[in-house]
Design a protein around this nucleic acid. Structure first.
Length: 318
DNA sequence: AAGCACTCCAACCGCCTTCTG
DNA sequence: GCAGAAGGCGGTTGGAGTGCT
């Protein structure tokens, strides 16, 4: 017996989320916490299916999400993990707590995959790498990608605005922050300010304000979550420094790698599963052996490998 | 200025897994 | 153990934004 598709109910709205809908959803989650998505549409009156609500929260409204501007470190992590795990975006995202699987997937599909194809094409032309090598040697591979990205990034930084500055509502974390602020300053119930697309600035102009808003919302969210589901600090917004600190701890093996039984975006337990699976199913080394390289020594090793492979990467990519 | 082509990402779709009674 | 419900995940696509001619 096939169950009906999630979003084919009559009256279910599709398409981009409006600011008003975001406020309704955030207000509800602030009050009840994330989860029990089934009840969200009925309780809020949103004409969205539960799945859509969950996705909207997970990918865009959840506090602590960083959008756009992938750092070289993040790019290295993605490339490396993709070479290890394949397109298991959720697992990859668990190593980048500020990023969603959807964001990583999009970034891979729109940026990294093309670059890799380009490199492989160039390598094939040079006879340096067989095209059939779906999982090329990580070190050499990453060093090539990284090298290319650095120059490409410099070029783009000099010539193009970052994509997060686009004025689309749905891609603007600033706009969402404004909505959240409006929601928080008013009553917990819906009080839509009716922000129009035009009235939303592209602003770099109030980053501090927005980060304060996010932080405040996160604090509220954490309080609620800890009350409802026990301690789970995964939703906290992480600064770059926090992220680096986390990685430094990881590399020191001081973080207990136990299953917290939560749906936190950073799930070492899930990584362990992947590790076990990798170890069982492939000839690749267990994931934990590569984590140190990935999380701590990545920069140093990549830089070193970049030097080592510089000669063999001398072909022009652009 | 207008039209076209391309890029990119938010959101949807459908399958799979996990949970619950 | 089974069936249905709910959640999770990866692939795909529609459409807005942008660049080029």
């Amino acid at each position: 017996m096939g169950r009906p598709p999630c979003c084919d109910n009559i009256g279910i709205k599709k398409g981009p989320w409006t600011p008003e809908e975001d406020i309704v959803l955030v207000s509800y989650i602030r009050e009840h916490g994330p989860g029990n998505w089934r009840s969200v549409p009925t309780s809020t009156g949103l004409m969205r299916c539960s799945k859509s609500c969950r996705l909207r929260w997970t990918n865009y409204l959840r506090p602590g999400i960083k959008r756009g501007n992938f750092t070289p470190h993040e790019e290295r992590v993605i490339i490396h993990l993709q070479s290890l795990l394949g397109n298991r975006w959720a697992s990859i995202a668990s190593y980048l707590p500020q990023r969603t699987d959807n964001d990583i997937k999009n970034y891979w599909n729109t940026h990294l995959k093309k670059k890799i194809n380009k490199i492989q094409g160039a390598a094939d032309a040079d006879g340096k790498k067989p095209s059939s090598d779906a999982r090329p040697d990580c070190h050499d591979y990453v060093s090539q990608i990284y090298k290319m990205m650095e120059s490409r990034k410099q070029y783009r930084a000099a010539t193009l605005p970052s994509y997060h500055q686009k004025s689309r509502y749905a891609s603007s974390s600033e706009n969402i922050s404004r909505l959240l602020q409006g929601s928080m300053q008013s009553s917990p119930t819906v009080n839509a300010p009716g922000k129009s697309k035009e009235s939303c600035s592209t602003a770099d102009d109030d980053d501090d304000e927005n980060s304060n808003i996010i932080t405040a919302l996160t604090a509220a969210s954490l309080t609620e979550n800890s009350q409802a589901e026990g301690d789970r600090g995964s939703c906290a917004p992480m600064t770059h420094d926090d992220f680096d600190l986390l990685h430094s701890f990881e590399s020191m093996d001081t973080v207990p790698r136990e299953n917290t039984g939560t749906e936190t975006p950073f799930q070492p337990a899930e990584a362990d599963d992947a590790e076990a699976q990798l170890g069982a199913e492939s000839d690749q080394p267990p994931l934990f052996l590569l984590e140190n390289w990935l999380l701590d020594e990545a920069s140093a090793q990549v830089d070193e490998l970049m030097k080592l492979t510089a000669d063999s990467c001398s072909y022009s990519i652009f």
